[in-house]
Design a protein around this nucleic acid. Structure first.
Length: 312
DNA sequence: AGAATACCTCAGCA
DNA sequence: ATGCTGAGGTATT
């Protein structure tokens, strides 16, 4: 086992609060042991500790991995994952200036930022998120890694696995049966079919990450072509994996917030239905994008977490 | 177009 | 206890 000692990234809690961001339903793979957050990033185990002005990290790489990743490469991968080039304090100030309600929330929910995650893992995870709870999604993602991923290493007697690639999930249609056994329910077929489509596309020499840099509309349309991906899931993946910072996913929590706090400005069409229609979804999403601006999705995540954590 | 319904499973709650 | 409800929705009718 090739264990690298502690390194550090200088970044204050105000710019990122791990205890709030990591379990809040962006990524479903972080585990907390004592003061440490542990997950798998690329092909290595990553261990994080937060101090006032630093994130301390170290990594455990697979023994079997032939080439050793350069320390600088790992450092860059972590900074990339946390989107450290984006100044969150500045965004909070801008959101506060644009939105009175944001001002009232922000002081209690600092350091909430959008992670820049692997496109396939994000797509697959959010297909699993539909009509589901964070707790159960986390369990499902854990079992899909354990069953179809590749062993990386163990830490504190816990084995860590990579997130399975599309190729690992579309070898045969028996995968669907297996996923159902793992508790995926009707999402099993979505995951399998999407893996198949992505794998085919990759065989043509493409990779999902090449869509980074395309417009929000283009990425969204592309994602909507996969089974199990509707407006909400597409917007989550746009925001969390494809650098579409203005994407504003409207889930049940945001829908609640909008009805309580933004109903007037959002000009919500009167509707007898309890559910959110596609047209209303687009109205609300566009309205909030106009209100919050280019990084609207980042503001959304702050309100989302505030709603998730509110104690009634 | 917009509404209603089916869809898997399970934690949380009365 | 046993039965509901709702969970970061989507596809179909």
């Amino acid at each position: 086992m090739n264990r690298i000692p502690w390194n550090q990234i200088k970044i204050p809690v105000k710019e990122i609060c791990l205890d709030v961001v990591l379990p809040s339903g962006q990524s479903f793979r972080w585990k907390k042991h004592g003061h440490e957050w542990v997950s798998v990033l690329n092909e290595f185990i990553i261990i994080l500790r937060q101090e006032d002005d630093y994130i301390l990290y170290r990594t455990i790489t697979s023994q079997t991995k032939a080439e050793v990743t350069a320390p600088m490469e790992i450092d860059n991968a972590i900074k990339d994952y946390f989107n450290t080039s984006i100044n969150l304090s500045k965004l909070y100030r801008e959101f506060g200036a644009r939105d009175r309600y944001f001002q009232t929330i922000a002081p209690r929910f600092g350091g909430i930022r959008i992670l820049r995650q692997d496109p396939w893992e994000t797509l697959c995870s959010f297909i699993c998120s539909s009509n589901n709870s964070i707790k159960r999604i986390t369990q499902m993602i854990e079992s899909i890694c354990l069953t179809f991923g590749t062993y990386v290493a163990s830490y504190n007697s816990v084995a860590y696995y990579t997130f399975p690639r599309p190729a690992d999930l579309c070898k045969s249609s028996a995968v669907v049966q297996r996923l159902r056994e793992l508790g995926f329910g009707y999402r099993a077929a979505y995951v399998y079919k999407t893996a198949l489509q992505v794998h085919e596309w990759e065989l043509l020499g493409h990779e999902l990450s090449e869509l980074r840099g395309s417009s929000y509309q283009e990425v969204r349309e592309f994602l909507l072509s996969f089974p199990g991906v509707g407006p909400k899931v597409a917007d989550c993946v746009c925001l969390m994996a494809f650098d579409c910072h203005s994407s504003v996913p409207i889930d049940t929590h945001m829908w609640n917030i909008v009805q309580k706090r933004y109903a007037k400005g959002a000009k919500i069409r009167p509707s007898k239905s309890k559910a959110l229609s596609k047209a209303t979804y687009d109205d609300i999403s566009s309205h909030l994008r106009g209100l919050w601006g280019e990084y609207a999705g980042w503001a959304q995540s702050v309100l989302f977490v505030s709603e998730l954590r509110k104690t009634p």
